[in-house]
Design a protein around this nucleic acid. Sequence first.
DNA 1: TGATTATATCAAAATATGTTGATATAATTA
DNA 2: TAATTATATCAACATATTTTGATATAATCA
Lengths: 105, 105
Amino acid sequence: MDNVKISQALSDPIRYKILMMLVRSENACCPVISNNAVESPVGLCNCEIMNELSMIQSRVSYHMKELVETGLVNEEPRGKWKYYFANSKKMLDYVDQLKLDFNLE
Amino acid sequence: MDNVKISQALSDPIRYKILMMLVRSENACCPVISNNAVESPVGLCNCEIMNELSMIQSRVSYHMKELVETGLVNEEPRGKWKYYFANSKKMLDYVDQLKLDFNLE
DNA sequence: TGATTATATCAAAATATGTTGATATAATTA
DNA sequence: TAATTATATCAACATATTTTGATATAATCA
């Protein structure tokens, strides 16, 4: 089921942290202009996540791919960068399905 | 973090299904009296899960241990049986934490 | 154009997780 | 008490996931 796949995506501490970072970056009131990505400062690119979490590049790529594949994260290539955005809709769907499956609330 | 551990518990299709079974068994309006466990028909024992899912005994034991360790499931030994109960409180805590971490609603 | 920069992908290795059959423990029943 | 039943645990194996370093691709910059 879809919720099992999403749980699996959330079950890695690095991916969980990355998701939180994406959410925060999108909710920042005054988005930071970083890495020359001036036009659209929301979202984070591979290299920003890499620096933030002190991870090597291929490791970041791997985890971002996992997140994108579940639909929890959307991507948008911009020049030589790739920007990532949390997909709140998907997260809400996950939560709603949990409520149904486990009779919550 | 706690939510990562819980996501990991939910990331196995068998465990996810078992949790749903426990929730359903507890919400049944007319609990089924099964397997001689007459006094307290709610909850499910190892052997019932085993039969229901056609799994060998050690496999069920393994998954129940995982679920109990996260707190998603509580156990109560009764005679030679062990009964399991979904812990809705824990599930709600999980959902609430998701909402906080991912800025939902 | 050539050098640089950002990301993707791959194969190998490391690590973690799940499954099985065997055996152990402990309560129950005959 | 002996046989039966339910569950736990263990070691071996199978499978899946994560990490790494190397190499490839493609956009940008000088």
